[in-house]
Nucleic acid binder design. Structure first.
Lengths: 114, 114
DNA sequence: TTATCATATAATGATTTGCTTATATATTCA
DNA sequence: TGAATATATAAGCAAATCATTATATGATAA
């Protein structure tokens, strides 16, 4: 089956979410590493509700998914989203953000789940 | 020379502009056809100042350029923008909008400049 | 020159956005 | 069970956004 192009309205909704530096960086990080809320709080030095609200928007559009592991909820890219390849084409053009994860590991604030 | 990745903050600024259905459609149209303001007014059924303001934002980021031809000002994609390839990767994923130009031609509202 | 057409800019207002603080819910651990 | 930790949700507010109407600017044509 041929992959159908994304609709303009759906594309605009997604791009609007990507048009925020916090969410854009979140997605670039999630593209390679599942993360929980408290890690993003550390990375962005932003309040926990602010982080949760950003993730909620990404989840509402189906771009990310969540999985609870104990007391933490890990977010990751939803590879089964109908717009995954659209998203991926954008993220692929952005600079790698692994350094932010490496810094968490140095700080000892990286949550390594079982 | 290796093409450097776009910076996150610049990417976010561009994506924010793309995250509006009017501007996103404008850019997809401009990707194949230079257009003037009055054509967009017809296409989007929106006031002339609203169209001008959208184009201003696109021009401020260097995504489009303008060229006066007589009383009209034609806008087109700025292929010499440093972010042209970034923009192009997004636009390439969107459905073709040529129908909007074809409808202008049917209406007789397409401006064919000399 | 004056009227007309195309466009830009300014001022305004309703809506949306992105944070904050306060509070609720869910899990873990002593 | 009760305290601590992680997260979500609600309410509120300042700033940004996107349209509108009014007006200014610039080009063309009578």
């Amino acid at each position: 089956m041929v992959e159908t192009a994304i609709e303009m309205d759906k594309a605009a909704l997604i791009l609007k979410l990507l048009g925020d530096q916090t969410r854009l960086t979140m997605l670039k990080i999630l593209d390679r590493h599942a993360c929980c809320v408290c890690e993003f709080v550390e990375i962005f030095q932003m309040s926990q509700p602010a982080i949760s609200q950003h993730l909620r928007k990404l989840k509402d559009l189906g771009l990310v998914q969540e999985e609870r592991k104990g007391q933490w909820i890990f977010y990751s890219i939803n590879k089964y989203s109908g717009e995954y390849s659209f998203l991926q084409q954008v993220l692929d053009q952005l600079p790698n953000q692994d350094l932010k994860i490496i810094e968490l590991e140095k700080n000892g604030t990286r949550i390594s789940c079982c």
